[in-house]
Measured scan of single mutants.
Amino acid sequence: RIRTTFTSAQLKELERVFAETHYPDIYTREELALKIDLTEARVQVWFQNRRAKFRK
């Protein structure tokens, strides 16, 4: 699998949801994935990585 490059619009939306909750449920992730045209798996991994970055 190649590395996913996020558009600024996708990042803006991901960060907006992250500001609300660091642990979005499956429904939130799936809805977000559809909205920004990514797979739910990519959204899930983005949140994992974002939480790791947040803890640092």
Rank of each mutant, 00 (worst) to 15 (best):
Arg1Asn: 11
Arg1Gly: 10
Arg1Trp: 07
Arg1Met: 07
Ile2Phe: 15
Ile2Gln: 06
Arg3Trp: 12
Arg3Cys: 12
Arg3Gln: 10
Thr5Trp: 09
Thr5Gly: 13
Phe6Ile: 12
Phe6Gln: 02
Thr7Gln: 02
Thr7Asn: 09
Thr7Glu: 02
Ser8Met: 06
Ser8His: 09
Ser8Trp: 07
Ser8Pro: 08
Ala9Arg: 10
Ala9His: 07
Ala9Val: 11
Ala9Phe: 10
Gln10Arg: 02
Gln10Phe: 02
Gln10Leu: 04
Gln10Lys: 05
Leu11Ala: 08
Leu11Met: 07
Lys12Phe: 07
Lys12Ile: 11
Lys12Val: 11
Glu13Ile: 04
Glu13Met: 04
Glu13Trp: 06
Leu14Asp: 01
Leu14Glu: 03
Leu14Cys: 03
Leu14Ser: 02
Glu15His: 02
Glu15Val: 03
Glu15Gln: 02
Arg16Ser: 15
Arg16Glu: 10
Val17Lys: 11
Val17Phe: 01
Phe18Arg: 06
Phe18Glu: 02
Phe18Gly: 03
Ala19Met: 06
Ala19Arg: 09
Ala19Asn: 13
Glu20Arg: 10
Glu20Ala: 07
Glu20Lys: 13
Thr21Arg: 05
Thr21Met: 04
Thr21Lys: 01
Thr21Cys: 09
His22Tyr: 01
His22Gln: 15
His22Lys: 08
His22Asp: 07
Tyr23Asn: 07
Tyr23Trp: 12
Tyr23Phe: 09
Tyr23Thr: 05
Tyr23Pro: 00
Pro24Ile: 07
Pro24Val: 03
Asp25Trp: 00
Asp25Val: 02
Asp25Ala: 06
Ile26Asn: 06
Ile26Gln: 13
Ile26Gly: 10
Ile26Thr: 11
Ile26Ala: 15
Ile26Lys: 14
Ile26Glu: 13
Tyr27Gln: 15
Tyr27Glu: 15
Tyr27His: 15
Tyr27Gly: 15
Thr28Leu: 12
Thr28Ile: 08
Thr28Glu: 09
Thr28Cys: 08
Thr28Ala: 13
Thr28Ser: 07
Thr28Tyr: 04
Thr28His: 07
Thr28Val: 12
Arg29Thr: 08
Arg29Cys: 08
Arg29Ala: 03
Arg29Phe: 01
Arg29Leu: 13
Glu30Ser: 14
Glu30Gln: 12
Glu30Val: 10
Glu31Gln: 14
Glu31Cys: 09
Leu32Phe: 01
Leu32Ile: 07
Leu32Ala: 01
Ala33Met: 00
Ala33Val: 03
Ala33Ile: 07
Leu34Val: 11
Leu34Met: 12
Leu34Thr: 15
Leu34Lys: 15
Lys35Met: 05
Lys35His: 01
Lys35Val: 05
Lys35Ser: 07
Lys35Arg: 11
Lys35Pro: 03
Lys35Tyr: 01
Lys35Leu: 06
Lys35Ala: 10
Ile36Glu: 01
Ile36Lys: 03
Ile36Leu: 15
Ile36Val: 14
Asp37Arg: 08
Asp37Leu: 05
Asp37Thr: 03
Asp37Asn: 15
Asp37Gln: 09
Leu38Trp: 09
Leu38Gln: 08
Leu38Phe: 00
Thr39Trp: 02
Thr39His: 04
Thr39Asp: 13
Thr39Lys: 07
Thr39Asn: 08
Glu40Val: 09
Glu40Thr: 06
Glu40Pro: 12
Ala41Tyr: 08
Ala41Lys: 13
Ala41His: 08
Ala41Met: 06
Arg42Ala: 15
Arg42Thr: 15
Arg42Tyr: 11
Arg42Leu: 14
Arg42Trp: 12
Arg42His: 15
Arg42Phe: 13
Arg42Ile: 15
Arg42Gln: 15
Val43Cys: 00
Gln44Ser: 13
Gln44Asp: 14
Gln44Glu: 11
Val45Thr: 13
Val45Gln: 11
Val45Phe: 11
Val45Asn: 14
Val45Asp: 14
Trp46Gln: 02
Trp46Asp: 00
Phe47Cys: 03
Phe47Ala: 04
Phe47Asn: 00
Gln48Ile: 06
Gln48Pro: 01
Gln48Ser: 11
Gln48Phe: 02
Gln48Gly: 06
Asn49Gln: 15
Asn49Thr: 12
Asn49Ile: 07
Asn49His: 10
Asn49Tyr: 09
Arg50Asn: 00
Arg50His: 00
Arg50Thr: 05
Arg51Thr: 06
Ala52Cys: 06
Ala52Asp: 12
Ala52Trp: 07
Ala52Leu: 13
Ala52Glu: 13
Ala52Ser: 12
Lys53Arg: 13
Lys53Phe: 00
Lys53Ser: 14
Lys53Met: 15
Phe54Ile: 10
Phe54Gly: 09
Phe54Lys: 07
Arg55Thr: 13
Arg55Leu: 14
Arg55Lys: 12
Arg55Tyr: 15
Lys56Met: 12
Lys56Cys: 14
Lys56His: 08
